[in-house]
Design a protein around this nucleic acid. Structure first.
Length: 478
DNA sequence: GAGTTTGAAACT
DNA sequence: CAGTTTCAAACTC
Protein backbone atom coordinates (compact mmCIF):
# COMPACT_ATOMS: atom_id res chain seq x y z
CA UNK A 1 0.00 0.00 0.00
CA UNK A 2 1.26 3.29 -0.90
CA UNK A 3 1.40 4.96 2.38
CA UNK A 4 3.55 7.79 1.50
CA UNK A 5 1.85 10.87 2.52
CA UNK A 6 4.36 13.14 1.14
CA UNK A 7 5.48 13.95 -2.22
CA UNK A 8 8.79 13.00 -3.46
CA UNK A 9 10.51 15.26 -5.74
CA UNK A 10 13.75 15.08 -7.35
CA UNK A 11 16.60 17.30 -6.75
CA UNK A 12 18.68 18.40 -9.54
CA UNK A 13 22.11 17.14 -9.70
CA UNK A 14 23.32 20.39 -8.41
CA UNK A 15 21.31 19.76 -5.35
CA UNK A 16 18.76 22.32 -6.05
CA UNK A 17 15.22 21.42 -5.66
CA UNK A 18 13.47 22.92 -8.55
CA UNK A 19 10.39 23.25 -6.56
CA UNK A 20 12.19 24.85 -3.78
CA UNK A 21 13.82 27.25 -6.01
CA UNK A 22 10.59 28.01 -7.59
CA UNK A 23 8.29 27.63 -4.75
CA UNK A 24 6.35 30.64 -5.66
CA UNK A 25 5.48 29.26 -8.95
CA UNK A 26 3.57 26.39 -7.65
CA UNK A 27 0.42 28.26 -7.64
CA UNK A 28 0.17 28.43 -11.31
CA UNK A 29 -1.88 25.39 -11.35
CA UNK A 30 -5.27 26.60 -11.91
CA UNK A 31 -5.86 25.43 -15.33
CA UNK A 32 -7.88 22.46 -15.80
CA UNK A 33 -7.89 20.49 -18.85
CA UNK A 34 -11.06 19.64 -20.33
CA UNK A 35 -11.66 17.20 -22.97
CA UNK A 36 -14.74 16.78 -24.95
CA UNK A 37 -17.46 15.22 -23.00
CA UNK A 38 -19.08 13.54 -25.83
CA UNK A 39 -17.63 10.27 -24.79
CA UNK A 40 -16.77 11.01 -21.27
CA UNK A 41 -19.20 8.63 -19.77
CA UNK A 42 -18.83 5.91 -22.16
CA UNK A 43 -17.18 3.27 -20.18
CA UNK A 44 -17.00 1.06 -23.12
CA UNK A 45 -15.41 3.66 -25.13
CA UNK A 46 -12.59 2.38 -27.07
CA UNK A 47 -10.48 5.18 -25.80
CA UNK A 48 -10.66 3.65 -22.48
CA UNK A 49 -10.81 0.07 -22.95
CA UNK A 50 -9.06 0.04 -26.10
CA UNK A 51 -7.89 -3.40 -26.75
CA UNK A 52 -4.85 -2.34 -28.52
CA UNK A 53 -3.34 -0.83 -25.47
CA UNK A 54 -0.86 1.82 -25.99
CA UNK A 55 -1.02 1.38 -29.62
CA UNK A 56 -4.68 1.96 -29.78
CA UNK A 57 -5.87 4.36 -32.27
CA UNK A 58 -8.25 7.15 -32.00
CA UNK A 59 -10.91 7.57 -34.53
CA UNK A 60 -8.44 9.49 -36.51
CA UNK A 61 -6.13 6.60 -36.34
CA UNK A 62 -3.91 8.47 -34.11
CA UNK A 63 -2.14 6.40 -31.55
CA UNK A 64 -3.31 7.51 -28.21
CA UNK A 65 0.02 6.98 -26.72
CA UNK A 66 1.35 9.34 -29.21
CA UNK A 67 -1.08 11.81 -27.96
CA UNK A 68 -0.02 11.09 -24.48
CA UNK A 69 3.44 11.63 -25.45
CA UNK A 70 2.27 14.63 -27.22
CA UNK A 71 1.01 16.03 -24.01
CA UNK A 72 4.28 15.59 -22.40
CA UNK A 73 6.43 16.61 -25.20
CA UNK A 74 4.27 19.50 -26.05
CA UNK A 75 3.53 20.81 -22.67
CA UNK A 76 6.45 19.94 -20.63
CA UNK A 77 9.39 22.16 -20.78
CA UNK A 78 12.83 20.86 -20.50
CA UNK A 79 12.90 22.19 -17.04
CA UNK A 80 10.17 21.82 -14.59
CA UNK A 81 10.36 25.38 -13.67
CA UNK A 82 7.74 27.92 -14.10
CA UNK A 83 9.06 31.32 -13.74
CA UNK A 84 9.44 34.32 -15.81
CA UNK A 85 11.69 32.52 -18.10
CA UNK A 86 9.26 29.75 -18.25
CA UNK A 87 6.58 32.12 -19.24
CA UNK A 88 8.81 33.59 -21.78
CA UNK A 89 9.32 30.19 -23.01
CA UNK A 90 5.65 29.92 -23.32
CA UNK A 91 5.70 33.04 -25.26
CA UNK A 92 8.18 31.48 -27.48
CA UNK A 93 5.93 28.63 -27.92
CA UNK A 94 3.46 31.08 -29.13
CA UNK A 95 5.53 31.21 -32.20
CA UNK A 96 4.64 27.74 -32.99
CA UNK A 97 2.48 26.96 -35.87
CA UNK A 98 -0.64 27.12 -33.93
CA UNK A 99 -3.70 29.14 -34.18
CA UNK A 100 -3.88 31.84 -31.63
CA UNK A 101 -6.50 30.13 -29.70
CA UNK A 102 -4.76 26.92 -29.79
CA UNK A 103 -1.59 28.53 -28.82
CA UNK A 104 -3.22 30.02 -25.83
CA UNK A 105 -4.70 26.78 -24.83
CA UNK A 106 -1.50 25.00 -25.22
CA UNK A 107 0.37 27.55 -23.30
CA UNK A 108 -2.01 27.46 -20.44
CA UNK A 109 -1.95 23.79 -20.53
CA UNK A 110 1.75 23.88 -20.42
CA UNK A 111 1.59 25.71 -17.19
CA UNK A 112 -0.45 22.98 -15.83
CA UNK A 113 1.96 20.38 -16.76
CA UNK A 114 4.93 22.40 -15.94
CA UNK A 115 3.66 22.62 -12.51
CA UNK A 116 2.17 19.30 -12.48
CA UNK A 117 4.58 16.75 -13.51
CA UNK A 118 3.15 13.45 -12.87
CA UNK A 119 0.01 14.53 -14.54
CA UNK A 120 -0.80 16.97 -11.90
CA UNK A 121 -1.48 14.45 -9.29
CA UNK A 122 -0.05 15.33 -6.04
CA UNK A 123 1.34 12.25 -4.60
CA UNK A 124 -0.24 13.07 -1.38
CA UNK A 125 -3.22 11.67 -2.97
CA UNK A 126 -1.62 8.41 -3.63
CA UNK A 127 -0.96 7.18 -0.23
CA UNK A 128 -3.18 6.18 2.53
CA UNK A 129 -5.46 4.33 0.36
CA UNK A 130 -6.24 1.61 2.75
CA UNK A 131 -5.95 -1.79 1.43
CA UNK A 132 -9.27 -2.82 0.28
CA UNK A 133 -10.46 0.66 0.06
CA UNK A 134 -12.79 0.73 -2.77
CA UNK A 135 -11.79 2.88 -5.58
CA UNK A 136 -13.85 5.71 -6.65
CA UNK A 137 -16.98 4.74 -8.26
CA UNK A 138 -17.70 5.66 -11.75
CA UNK A 139 -19.90 8.37 -10.57
CA UNK A 140 -17.15 9.54 -8.43
CA UNK A 141 -14.72 9.50 -11.16
CA UNK A 142 -16.54 11.90 -13.20
CA UNK A 143 -17.01 15.17 -11.53
CA UNK A 144 -19.21 16.16 -14.30
CA UNK A 145 -21.55 13.50 -13.30
CA UNK A 146 -21.65 14.65 -9.80
CA UNK A 147 -22.22 18.18 -10.68
CA UNK A 148 -19.53 18.95 -8.24
CA UNK A 149 -17.63 21.01 -10.62
CA UNK A 150 -19.08 24.24 -11.70
CA UNK A 151 -19.83 24.47 -15.30
CA UNK A 152 -17.33 27.14 -15.72
CA UNK A 153 -14.75 25.36 -13.80
CA UNK A 154 -14.90 21.81 -14.64
CA UNK A 155 -11.82 19.96 -14.13
CA UNK A 156 -13.40 17.56 -16.39
CA UNK A 157 -12.40 14.05 -16.22
CA UNK A 158 -13.24 12.67 -19.46
CA UNK A 159 -12.29 9.87 -21.56
CA UNK A 160 -9.02 11.40 -22.21
CA UNK A 161 -7.98 11.87 -18.71
CA UNK A 162 -9.26 8.50 -17.83
CA UNK A 163 -7.57 7.01 -20.66
CA UNK A 164 -4.28 7.99 -19.31
CA UNK A 165 -3.72 4.83 -17.44
CA UNK A 166 -5.10 2.87 -20.24
CA UNK A 167 -2.97 4.84 -22.49
CA UNK A 168 -0.05 3.62 -20.60
CA UNK A 169 -1.10 0.19 -21.40
CA UNK A 170 1.72 -1.61 -22.86
CA UNK A 171 1.98 -3.73 -25.84
CA UNK A 172 -0.97 -5.73 -25.05
CA UNK A 173 -1.50 -8.01 -27.85
CA UNK A 174 -4.98 -9.11 -27.18
CA UNK A 175 -7.29 -6.50 -25.91
CA UNK A 176 -9.90 -6.55 -28.50
CA UNK A 177 -12.50 -8.40 -26.61
CA UNK A 178 -15.16 -6.45 -24.80
CA UNK A 179 -14.19 -8.30 -21.71
CA UNK A 180 -10.73 -6.99 -21.99
CA UNK A 181 -12.08 -3.57 -22.48
CA UNK A 182 -14.23 -3.88 -19.45
CA UNK A 183 -11.45 -5.18 -17.33
CA UNK A 184 -9.24 -2.47 -18.48
CA UNK A 185 -11.76 0.15 -17.67
CA UNK A 186 -12.34 -1.27 -14.28
CA UNK A 187 -8.68 -1.24 -13.67
CA UNK A 188 -8.52 2.34 -14.67
CA UNK A 189 -11.36 3.04 -12.36
CA UNK A 190 -9.48 1.56 -9.54
CA UNK A 191 -6.49 3.50 -10.48
CA UNK A 192 -8.39 6.67 -9.93
CA UNK A 193 -8.97 5.81 -6.36
CA UNK A 194 -7.82 8.60 -4.27
CA UNK A 195 -7.48 9.33 -0.68
CA UNK A 196 -10.42 10.76 1.04
CA UNK A 197 -10.39 13.03 3.93
CA UNK A 198 -12.47 12.98 6.98
CA UNK A 199 -12.11 16.50 8.11
CA UNK A 200 -14.63 17.85 10.49
CA UNK A 201 -13.52 21.22 11.57
CA UNK A 202 -10.99 22.43 9.15
CA UNK A 203 -13.48 22.79 6.36
CA UNK A 204 -10.88 21.07 4.33
CA UNK A 205 -9.14 24.34 3.91
CA UNK A 206 -6.14 23.61 5.95
CA UNK A 207 -3.22 21.41 5.49
CA UNK A 208 -4.76 19.08 7.92
CA UNK A 209 -6.90 18.05 5.06
CA UNK A 210 -5.10 15.63 2.90
CA UNK A 211 -7.14 16.50 -0.08
CA UNK A 212 -6.42 20.14 0.29
CA UNK A 213 -2.81 19.53 1.03
CA UNK A 214 -2.61 17.38 -2.01
CA UNK A 215 -4.11 20.02 -4.19
CA UNK A 216 -7.24 18.11 -4.69
CA UNK A 217 -10.82 18.96 -4.34
CA UNK A 218 -12.76 16.88 -1.99
CA UNK A 219 -15.12 14.55 -3.62
CA UNK A 220 -18.07 12.52 -2.71
CA UNK A 221 -16.24 9.71 -1.03
CA UNK A 222 -14.74 12.14 1.38
CA UNK A 223 -16.34 12.10 4.73
CA UNK A 224 -15.56 15.65 5.49
CA UNK A 225 -18.00 18.04 7.02
CA UNK A 226 -18.61 21.62 6.08
CA UNK A 227 -16.23 21.11 3.26
CA UNK A 228 -15.19 24.14 1.34
CA UNK A 229 -12.65 22.35 -0.70
CA UNK A 230 -14.84 22.06 -3.67
CA UNK A 231 -14.88 23.67 -7.03
CA UNK A 232 -17.88 25.69 -6.16
CA UNK A 233 -15.78 27.32 -3.52
CA UNK A 234 -12.86 27.68 -5.76
CA UNK A 235 -12.22 31.23 -4.78
CA UNK A 236 -12.15 30.33 -1.16
CA UNK A 237 -9.91 27.44 -1.84
CA UNK A 238 -7.50 29.47 -3.84
CA UNK A 239 -7.50 32.30 -1.44
CA UNK A 240 -6.88 30.02 1.45
CA UNK A 241 -4.18 28.32 -0.39
CA UNK A 242 -2.64 31.62 -1.17
CA UNK A 243 -2.68 32.58 2.43
CA UNK A 244 -1.07 29.38 3.43
CA UNK A 245 1.53 29.78 0.82
CA UNK A 246 2.17 33.30 1.84
CA UNK A 247 2.89 31.95 5.24
CA UNK A 248 4.93 29.15 3.96
CA UNK A 249 5.74 29.13 0.28
CA UNK A 250 6.59 25.51 0.53
CA UNK A 251 3.50 24.54 2.35
CA UNK A 252 2.27 22.68 -0.65
CA UNK A 253 5.61 21.58 -1.79
CA UNK A 254 6.43 17.95 -1.69
CA UNK A 255 7.57 16.89 1.64
CA UNK A 256 9.85 14.23 0.49
CA UNK A 257 12.60 14.67 -1.90
CA UNK A 258 15.15 12.37 -3.15
CA UNK A 259 18.71 13.26 -3.43
CA UNK A 260 20.90 12.51 -6.32
CA UNK A 261 23.07 10.25 -4.36
CA UNK A 262 21.67 6.86 -4.12
CA UNK A 263 23.72 5.87 -1.19
CA UNK A 264 23.97 8.77 1.06
CA UNK A 265 21.70 11.65 1.30
CA UNK A 266 22.53 15.23 1.42
CA UNK A 267 23.11 15.04 5.08
CA UNK A 268 25.75 12.54 4.56
CA UNK A 269 24.33 9.75 6.57
CA UNK A 270 23.93 6.43 5.05
CA UNK A 271 20.89 4.39 5.34
CA UNK A 272 18.82 2.06 3.37
CA UNK A 273 16.19 4.36 2.11
CA UNK A 274 15.74 3.59 -1.51
CA UNK A 275 17.11 6.20 -3.74
CA UNK A 276 17.90 8.25 -0.73
CA UNK A 277 14.57 9.93 -0.61
CA UNK A 278 14.27 12.13 2.38
CA UNK A 279 11.70 14.14 4.11
CA UNK A 280 12.48 17.66 3.41
CA UNK A 281 11.87 19.11 6.79
CA UNK A 282 12.23 15.99 8.76
CA UNK A 283 9.90 14.62 11.32
CA UNK A 284 9.49 15.50 14.90
CA UNK A 285 8.38 12.25 16.33
CA UNK A 286 8.60 11.71 20.00
CA UNK A 287 6.85 8.53 20.84
CA UNK A 288 6.37 6.65 17.69
CA UNK A 289 10.05 6.05 17.25
CA UNK A 290 9.45 6.83 13.64
CA UNK A 291 8.11 3.36 13.29
CA UNK A 292 4.55 4.25 12.68
CA UNK A 293 2.78 6.18 10.12
CA UNK A 294 2.47 9.03 12.49
CA UNK A 295 5.95 9.68 11.32
CA UNK A 296 5.94 11.39 8.02
CA UNK A 297 9.26 10.00 7.13
CA UNK A 298 8.17 6.51 7.85
CA UNK A 299 4.90 7.06 6.14
CA UNK A 300 6.70 8.29 3.12
CA UNK A 301 8.90 5.30 3.26
CA UNK A 302 12.01 7.30 3.65
CA UNK A 303 14.62 7.30 6.26
CA UNK A 304 15.05 9.98 8.79
CA UNK A 305 17.75 12.45 8.22
CA UNK A 306 19.67 14.80 10.34
CA UNK A 307 17.05 17.34 9.68
CA UNK A 308 14.67 15.26 11.70
CA UNK A 309 14.17 16.13 15.29
CA UNK A 310 12.76 12.83 16.21
CA UNK A 311 13.57 11.13 19.42
CA UNK A 312 14.44 7.51 19.66
CA UNK A 313 14.38 7.17 15.96
CA UNK A 314 14.07 3.64 14.77
CA UNK A 315 12.90 4.41 11.32
CA UNK A 316 13.08 1.18 9.48
CA UNK A 317 13.87 3.01 6.30
CA UNK A 318 16.84 4.57 7.81
CA UNK A 319 17.38 6.12 11.10
CA UNK A 320 19.03 9.36 11.62
CA UNK A 321 21.99 7.29 12.43
CA UNK A 322 22.15 4.02 10.66
CA UNK A 323 19.73 1.77 8.93
CA UNK A 324 17.25 -0.76 10.05
CA UNK A 325 19.31 -3.67 9.01
CA UNK A 326 21.43 -2.97 11.94
CA UNK A 327 18.45 -3.16 14.14
CA UNK A 328 18.15 -6.24 16.18
CA UNK A 329 15.11 -5.03 17.90
CA UNK A 330 12.29 -7.34 17.11
CA UNK A 331 9.65 -4.72 16.96
CA UNK A 332 11.70 -2.64 14.72
CA UNK A 333 12.44 -5.50 12.48
CA UNK A 334 8.86 -6.34 12.37
CA UNK A 335 7.89 -2.86 11.56
CA UNK A 336 10.64 -2.74 9.07
CA UNK A 337 9.49 -5.83 7.34
CA UNK A 338 5.93 -4.81 7.52
CA UNK A 339 6.49 -1.45 6.11
CA UNK A 340 8.95 -2.75 3.63
CA UNK A 341 6.26 -5.03 2.47
CA UNK A 342 3.93 -2.16 2.19
CA UNK A 343 6.53 -0.27 0.36
CA UNK A 344 6.82 -3.07 -2.03
CA UNK A 345 3.18 -2.82 -2.56
CA UNK A 346 3.50 0.84 -3.03
CA UNK A 347 6.05 0.39 -5.60
CA UNK A 348 4.13 -2.25 -7.23
CA UNK A 349 1.36 0.16 -7.44
CA UNK A 350 3.29 2.07 -9.88
CA UNK A 351 4.68 -0.73 -11.82
CA UNK A 352 2.08 -3.27 -11.38
CA UNK A 353 -1.27 -1.94 -10.64
CA UNK A 354 -3.06 -4.98 -11.76
CA UNK A 355 -1.21 -7.21 -9.51
CA UNK A 356 -2.42 -5.12 -6.67
CA UNK A 357 -5.66 -3.75 -7.77
CA UNK A 358 -6.42 -2.50 -4.35
CA UNK A 359 -3.26 -0.58 -4.42
CA UNK A 360 -3.73 0.93 -7.70
CA UNK A 361 -2.26 4.28 -8.12
CA UNK A 362 -4.96 6.73 -8.52
CA UNK A 363 -4.71 8.32 -11.78
CA UNK A 364 -5.07 11.99 -11.64
CA UNK A 365 -8.60 12.93 -11.27
CA UNK A 366 -8.15 16.20 -12.91
CA UNK A 367 -11.39 17.41 -11.58
CA UNK A 368 -9.78 17.36 -8.22
CA UNK A 369 -6.77 19.31 -9.13
CA UNK A 370 -7.50 22.90 -8.46
CA UNK A 371 -3.87 23.62 -7.97
CA UNK A 372 -2.41 20.26 -8.20
CA UNK A 373 1.13 19.97 -7.38
CA UNK A 374 3.34 17.53 -8.98
CA UNK A 375 3.44 15.70 -5.76
CA UNK A 376 4.22 12.17 -5.14
CA UNK A 377 3.46 10.93 -8.50
CA UNK A 378 6.02 13.27 -9.76
CA UNK A 379 8.43 11.36 -7.73
CA UNK A 380 7.98 8.58 -10.12
CA UNK A 381 7.67 10.61 -13.22
CA UNK A 382 9.70 13.68 -12.72
CA UNK A 383 12.05 12.90 -15.45
CA UNK A 384 9.63 11.41 -17.73
CA UNK A 385 7.69 14.53 -17.40
CA UNK A 386 10.67 16.64 -17.54
CA UNK A 387 11.87 15.74 -20.87
CA UNK A 388 11.72 12.12 -21.44
CA UNK A 389 10.05 11.48 -24.70
CA UNK A 390 8.27 8.64 -23.15
CA UNK A 391 6.75 7.75 -19.94
CA UNK A 392 7.85 4.33 -20.52
CA UNK A 393 9.09 2.41 -23.32
CA UNK A 394 7.56 -0.75 -24.39
CA UNK A 395 9.36 -3.88 -23.82
CA UNK A 396 12.20 -2.73 -25.81
CA UNK A 397 15.65 -3.16 -24.50
CA UNK A 398 14.70 -6.57 -23.56
CA UNK A 399 11.47 -6.73 -21.78
CA UNK A 400 12.73 -9.95 -20.42
CA UNK A 401 14.54 -7.87 -17.96
CA UNK A 402 12.09 -8.62 -15.27
CA UNK A 403 14.23 -6.95 -12.74
CA UNK A 404 13.27 -3.72 -14.27
CA UNK A 405 9.82 -4.25 -12.98
CA UNK A 406 10.61 -5.76 -9.70
CA UNK A 407 7.90 -4.91 -7.29
CA UNK A 408 10.25 -3.27 -4.95
CA UNK A 409 10.62 0.19 -3.87
CA UNK A 410 14.02 0.15 -5.30
CA UNK A 411 12.62 -0.68 -8.61
CA UNK A 412 10.29 2.12 -8.35
CA UNK A 413 12.77 4.64 -7.38
CA UNK A 414 15.27 3.19 -9.63
CA UNK A 415 13.04 4.40 -12.31
CA UNK A 416 14.09 7.79 -11.29
CA UNK A 417 17.49 8.35 -12.61
CA UNK A 418 19.88 9.13 -9.92
CA UNK A 419 21.67 11.52 -12.07
CA UNK A 420 18.67 13.64 -12.44
CA UNK A 421 18.89 13.08 -16.07
CA UNK A 422 15.44 13.30 -17.47
CA UNK A 423 15.65 9.89 -18.77
CA UNK A 424 13.54 6.99 -17.96
CA UNK A 425 14.72 3.69 -19.09
CA UNK A 426 12.31 2.47 -21.55
CA UNK A 427 12.12 -0.75 -19.78
CA UNK A 428 11.15 0.98 -16.64
CA UNK A 429 7.54 0.58 -16.62
CA UNK A 430 4.78 2.63 -15.25
CA UNK A 431 1.58 1.04 -15.96
CA UNK A 432 -1.72 0.20 -14.59
CA UNK A 433 -2.55 -2.33 -17.09
CA UNK A 434 -1.30 -5.72 -17.56
CA UNK A 435 1.29 -6.49 -20.00
CA UNK A 436 1.05 -10.05 -20.95
CA UNK A 437 4.31 -9.88 -22.66
CA UNK A 438 6.03 -9.39 -19.40
CA UNK A 439 4.68 -11.54 -16.65
CA UNK A 440 6.74 -9.82 -14.11
CA UNK A 441 5.85 -6.51 -15.42
CA UNK A 442 2.17 -6.69 -15.72
CA UNK A 443 1.47 -3.15 -15.02
CA UNK A 444 3.53 -1.03 -17.19
CA UNK A 445 2.99 2.44 -18.30
CA UNK A 446 4.04 1.55 -21.65
CA UNK A 447 4.21 3.67 -24.65
CA UNK A 448 5.35 2.86 -28.04
CA UNK A 449 8.26 4.61 -29.39
CA UNK A 450 7.21 7.48 -31.33
CA UNK A 451 8.31 10.66 -32.72
CA UNK A 452 7.76 13.29 -30.15
CA UNK A 453 7.36 15.92 -32.75
CA UNK A 454 4.71 14.17 -34.58
CA UNK A 455 3.03 13.15 -31.43
CA UNK A 456 3.10 16.66 -30.26
CA UNK A 457 1.36 17.72 -33.34
CA UNK A 458 -1.05 14.95 -32.90
CA UNK A 459 -1.73 15.93 -29.42
CA UNK A 460 -2.42 19.44 -30.37
CA UNK A 461 -4.83 18.23 -32.85
CA UNK A 462 -6.65 16.63 -30.05
CA UNK A 463 -9.91 18.13 -29.06
CA UNK A 464 -8.42 19.45 -25.96
CA UNK A 465 -10.29 22.24 -24.41
CA UNK A 466 -8.90 24.18 -21.61
CA UNK A 467 -11.49 25.07 -19.15
CA UNK A 468 -11.54 27.18 -16.14
CA UNK A 469 -8.46 29.20 -16.18
CA UNK A 470 -8.82 31.09 -12.99
CA UNK A 471 -5.90 33.29 -12.58
CA UNK A 472 -4.48 31.42 -9.77
CA UNK A 473 -2.24 33.72 -7.91
CA UNK A 474 1.27 33.52 -9.00
CA UNK A 475 3.41 33.87 -6.03
CA UNK A 476 6.72 35.23 -6.66
CA UNK A 477 9.40 33.29 -4.98
CA UNK A 478 10.82 35.07 -2.04
C1' DG B 1 -17.15 1.76 15.65
C1' DA B 2 -15.52 4.34 19.53
C1' DG B 3 -11.88 5.98 21.92
C1' DT B 4 -6.95 6.99 22.25
C1' DT B 5 -2.58 8.34 20.58
C1' DT B 6 0.26 10.87 17.76
C1' DG B 7 2.58 14.54 15.48
C1' DA B 8 1.84 18.09 11.93
C1' DA B 9 -0.35 22.36 11.31
C1' DA B 10 -1.98 26.38 13.14
C1' DC B 11 -2.00 29.70 16.45
C1' DT B 12 -0.25 32.80 20.15
C1' DC C 1 11.48 31.01 17.75
C1' DA C 2 9.14 28.52 21.33
C1' DG C 3 5.14 26.99 23.53
C1' DT C 4 0.37 25.80 23.10
C1' DT C 5 -3.73 24.44 20.81
C1' DT C 6 -6.15 22.37 17.13
C1' DC C 7 -6.75 18.94 14.02
C1' DA C 8 -7.24 14.62 11.56
C1' DA C 9 -4.94 10.42 10.66
C1' DA C 10 -3.18 6.38 12.70
C1' DC C 11 -3.80 3.25 15.87
C1' DT C 12 -5.89 0.31 19.58
C1' DC C 13 -9.44 -2.02 21.69
Amino acid sequence: MLTMNSSIIHENTDGRDWRTTNSGTTSFISNILQFPLDKANNSENAEFGDPSGSCKQSESGEPVMDRMHGILSTCLPDELVVNDSGLKKDDKEGNCNESNHQQFSIRRRCLVFEKSPGFGLHLNSLPNIPKGQSPLSKSTLSSTNRGEVPDDNKGVVTENSYEMPATFGGNEADHNSPEKKRQKFELVEESVACKRCNCKRSKCLKLYCDCFAAGLYCIEPCSCQDCFNKPIHENVVLETRRQIESRNPLAFAPKVIRTTNGVSDSMGEINKTPASARHKRGCNCKRSSCLKKYCECFQAGVGCSLSCRCEGCKNSFGRKEGGCESESDGDNLEACEKNASEKSSHDTVISNGQEHPDLSVPSPDISRLPFAYSGKLAAFFPHSIKSSPQLCGTQEQGSSDTSSCKPKLESNLDGIPESGTPEIPKHKCFTLVSNPTSPNCKGVFSTPNHDSTSSSTKWRSRKLILRSVPSFPSFSPP
